[in-house]
């Protein structure tokens, strides 16, 4: 896409970090009104696919900021408060997914899509592990509880969303990007 280095941080990253965050915040908040698919205590938040997509398309800084600020915003407008460890966890999801950005050449190519989804899932795992384990420390729950109560449902929900929606977003993006002159 652009041949700048993975960790560059300029106007572009600021703008897409902010846009990703605002979208992630809005879509998370919209989940309060739109009936979402759920199974047991796993809810599927489609907003997560947008976060992973922003990481994949624009790199790790954008992924981190979109996740961190986006989760904070989503919680804020829904009135939940400020749960810093979940915000950091969401940031890590985007950041890890963003590590693949430099390797993505064609958003339509199957190989690139598979790569993006794999990084996305690893990102979901890392981010949700971080959040769940900080809950262990702050709430004084044991490993099994953190795993069963926090990690597993969050991981499954977010990973499924990533697998299904990230490829759709990438293919749409390939079409949009083809129109651009930069």
């Amino acid at each position: 896409m652009n041949n700048s280095s993975t960790w560059e941080f300029g106007t572009r990253q600021v703008v897409y970090g902010a846009i990703g965050a605002a979208l992630y915040g809005v879509l998370s908040w919209a989940s309060n009104f739109v009936p979402l698919p759920a199974a047991g205590n796993v809810t599927f938040r489609p907003a997560v696919a947008v976060l992973i997509f922003f990481g994949v398309a624009y790199g790790p800084w954008v992924g981190f900021l979109a996740g961190f600020i986006g989760n904070t915003l989503g919680d804020a407008i829904s009135g939940w408060g400020f749960f810093w460890n979940w915000s950091v966890g969401n940031g890590l999801m985007g950041l890890v997914a963003g590590l693949v950005a430099a390797q993505i050449k064609d958003f339509r190519a199957q190989g690139d899509i598979v790569k993006a989804v794999i990084y996305g899932i690893v990102g979901v795992a890392v981010g949700m592990l971080f959040a769940s384990f900080t809950e262990m420390i702050t709430s004084g729950i044991d490993f099994n509880t953190a795993l069963v109560g926090y990690f597993v449902p969050a991981f499954i929900g977010n990973a499924v969303v990533t697998v299904i929606l990230v490829p759709i977003l990438m293919i749409a993006f390939a079409a949009v990007a083809s129109r651009r002159g930069r």
């Binding site: 703008v15 970090g17 846009i19 605002a22």
Partner: peptide
């Protein structure tokens, strides 16, 4: 810091 302000702007 500005990323944060810009995110609020777009929300």
């Amino acid at each position: 810091s500005f990323t944060m302000d810009l995110a609020f702007r777009f929300l």
